[in-house]
């Protein structure tokens, strides 16, 4: 059996989450990857350990991974594959269901575990239940959660690169612009430590109180929806059911109450720390270590302690 993995990229780099999708695909059989973009990306893809062939779509219409042309391309390639896989990120979730519909397949999103070639485990109800589902479709189209599969090593492979020609698709969409946040911090989804702030941070300015802590821990910064909605931080920092799913070694929540939608995005972290001035905050029910107190006092103390 052979799986085709759509390797998504951003800012000229293959996304780390795509490497987890490669690992998931190796459990299903031989792994080919599809890269839509410039030659450097195809070169990088050929180095990934476990990949046996790289399909490179160089045509300009694919450069921004628009769903309409990319789904059509996947459909044209699908004949040779039993599984079509992508990371459960913005690109995979945009493109794969469209391709699945064109293939008359029900997609299986957010896979966290592979039971066998047709049986998969996925969270439903914001992670409050885990459903094991078996697909009767001839082809399986799935997205996988990067928090549940280790990233395949980016080096060590030497797969051949094969050019794939563009295929026709409805000319109904055009890319206009993109704004990427250029943070020097580690990527939220793959960071070892995540420091998150909620509504309790108070303002955009005061949210920066977490910066020295993130610096000393080499951590990524995350946020609750309330912090994003209040304009403290941009939306790509949101952790939760409808934001990023993270499972770092250490997750530290400051001024976050612990709504189920937030917990859905971080409760698989190995160690959880919560700092909240409300002793009844539900976040303490999942925290390994909690401090009841004012975060603006606790955070500087933590920074000082950690520098020792």
């Amino acid at each position: 059996m052979t799986a085709l993995v759509l390797l998504d990229h951003e800012g000229g780099q293959i996304r780390k989450a795509a490497l987890s999708a490669v690992t998931a695909a190796t459990r299903l059989g031989d792994v080919h990857v599809l890269v839509a973009g410039d030659a450097a990306l195809a070169q990088a893809a050929s180095q990934i350990a476990g990949v046996s062939k790289v399909l490179h779509a160089a045509d300009a219409r694919y450069a921004h991974e628009l769903a309409e042309p990319l789904a059509a391309l996947l459909v044209s390639l699908a004949g040779s594959y039993d599984h079509i896989v992508a990371a459960a990120g913005a690109t995979g979730k945009n493109v794969l269901p469209r391709a699945a519909a064109l293939l008359d397949v029900q997609p299986i999103p957010d896979v966290v575990s592979i039971v066998d070639a047709q049986t998969f485990v996925r969270p439903i109800y914001a992670g409050n239940a885990l459903a094991t589902v078996r697909s009767s479709d001839a082809k399986k189209v799935l997205t996988v959660r990067s928090a549940s599969f280790d990233a395949a090593p980016a080096e060590g492979g030497s797969a051949p690169v094969e050019a794939v020609a563009a295929v026709d698709s409805p000319d109904v969409s055009r890319f206009e612009a993109v704004q990427l946040s250029d943070s020097a911090r580690p990527d939220l989804e793959s960071a070892r430590v995540v420091v998150s702030g909620g509504r309790g941070m108070g303002s955009e300015e005061k949210f920066h109180a977490l910066d020295p802590l993130a610096d000393v821990l080499g951590a990524a910064v995350g946020a609750s929806r309330a912090a994003v909605d209040s304009g403290f931080v941009p939306n790509e920092l949101q952790v939760g059911q409808t934001g990023k799913i993270v499972a770092p070694e250490l997750y530290m929540a400051f001024g976050i109450s612990g709504a189920i939608q937030h917990l859905a995005g971080m409760k698989d972290s190995r160690v959880i720390v919560a700092v909240n001035k409300d002793p009844e905050a539900p976040i303490f029910q999942v925290a390994d270590y909690g401090i009841v107190g004012d975060l603006f006092e606790v955070v500087p103390q933590l920074v000082e302690e950690l520098k020792k």
Partner: peptide, 17 residues
């Protein structure tokens, strides 16, 4: 898709303050 089973995720225990 056939639902084979639906299970509770592993419950996290509250730790210490």
């Amino acid at each position: 898709l056939t639902v084979v089973s639906v299970a509770e995720p592993a419950e996290r225990k509250a730790g210490i303050k």
